[in-house]
Amino acid sequence: MSSLPRRPLVLGLCAVVVLALLAVAAFVRLPFTIMYPGITVNTLGVYDGQRVITITGHPLRQTSGELRMVTIAATPPQDSISIGAALRAWPNPSEAVVPRAAVYPAGQSVAQVNAQDQQEMNQSQQAATTAALNHLKLSPDKVKVGLSLADVGGPSAGLLFTLGIIDELDGNGTGKPGAAGDLTNGAVVAGTGEIDDSGQVSQVGGVALKTKAAARDGATVFLVPQAECADAEAGLPKGLRLVPVTSLDDALSALTALQTGVGAVPACS
């Protein structure tokens, strides 16, 4: 009686082992997180039942259009992703697989990360208020600005906060509330960028995902820190115009040129 050929038997055993390893690997959790486009919020509007910007001590304008700050979201640290999830997300231009420590630093709890994000948001709001009032030559002793954006952290909304304050107080005019036109010309403008007291805008990261959030929510113009042009152009959604800026003055000049058709509008490329 003849025995079974050894080669098919060995191949069969190898196949079983490989399948077993793949089955185990599918459930192995990796030290990575998946980032994706988050919410956008109109700084001229209402979020979570409250106006994002409240101002007292100065006449306000009735604005139109939208000035949307944008965010990115990430899988929570307790949801470390599987190999399968990573492989599915890797080629997706609307997702980014990054080391978990890049979002949740080692040695910090989720509460500590959230507290740090909130502190950065508070500092960003203070800088935005200072930059806006300095630009309009208004005294912070007389004009009080409140900014409310629950459950959103980090410094990247600074530029859009500043533009929102200016639009509500003055639009694109020179200190005559009610007489000036909107910064947006009725359009949906989105953007990102940290701002300091002097109005300088710096990069914040994640713009390739933020542009997708902006386009999803109707934006046609996206203000981006100039240093992040290359990242913003990667997978840029159709119909979204990038406008690079390095300062508040850059952003205001570009928006005025877009509205009036007078003057050059900068481009990334």
Rank of each mutant, 00 (worst) to 15 (best):
P93S: 08
G235F: 03
P37C: 08
V103C: 08
P99A: 10
S80A: 15
F27I: 09
Y36M: 11
R88C: 06
G38M: 01
A180D: 10
S124H: 07
L19K: 07
A25K: 07
D48A: 14
R29Y: 01
A86I: 11
Q200T: 15
G199R: 02
I83R: 12
M69L: 15
T246F: 00
D197M: 09
I53N: 03
A131D: 03
G181A: 14
K210L: 03
R51H: 14
G193K: 02
A214C: 08
L242C: 01
L22P: 06
L252Q: 00
G154L: 03
D197V: 14
Q62H: 15
V110I: 14
V204F: 04
A232Q: 00
G49I: 09
A15K: 07
V97E: 05
A86D: 07
G38V: 06
Q112S: 13
G186E: 04
P140S: 11
S269M: 07
V28H: 01
V201I: 09
A85M: 12
S94F: 11
V245Y: 04
V16F: 08
F161Y: 13
T71E: 04
A150R: 15
G49Q: 01
P37V: 08
N42K: 05
R61V: 10
A187N: 13
G65D: 05
L19W: 12
R6A: 10
S198A: 14
Q62A: 15
V28N: 02
T63M: 07
R216D: 12
M69D: 11
V152K: 10
S94M: 13
V265L: 06
R29G: 08
L21Q: 10
L169R: 01
G171F: 01
V265D: 02
G107E: 08
A26Q: 13
N122Y: 02
I166H: 01
H135P: 00
D79T: 12
V207Q: 04
R88V: 15
Q123L: 13
T54C: 04
L9S: 00
G181N: 11
L236P: 03
P77M: 09
A25L: 14
I55W: 01
R7M: 10
L160Y: 01
S253Y: 03
A101L: 12
V189C: 00
A257F: 01
G175T: 09
N114Q: 15
M35L: 15
S124L: 06
T43F: 01
S198W: 08
A179W: 09
L258D: 08
P244W: 02
F222Y: 06
A150H: 13
A190N: 06
K238Y: 00
V207S: 01
G171M: 02
V243M: 04
S124N: 06
G181M: 11
V201M: 00
T192M: 03
N92E: 14
P77V: 14
R6Q: 09
L138T: 06
S124G: 10
V41T: 07
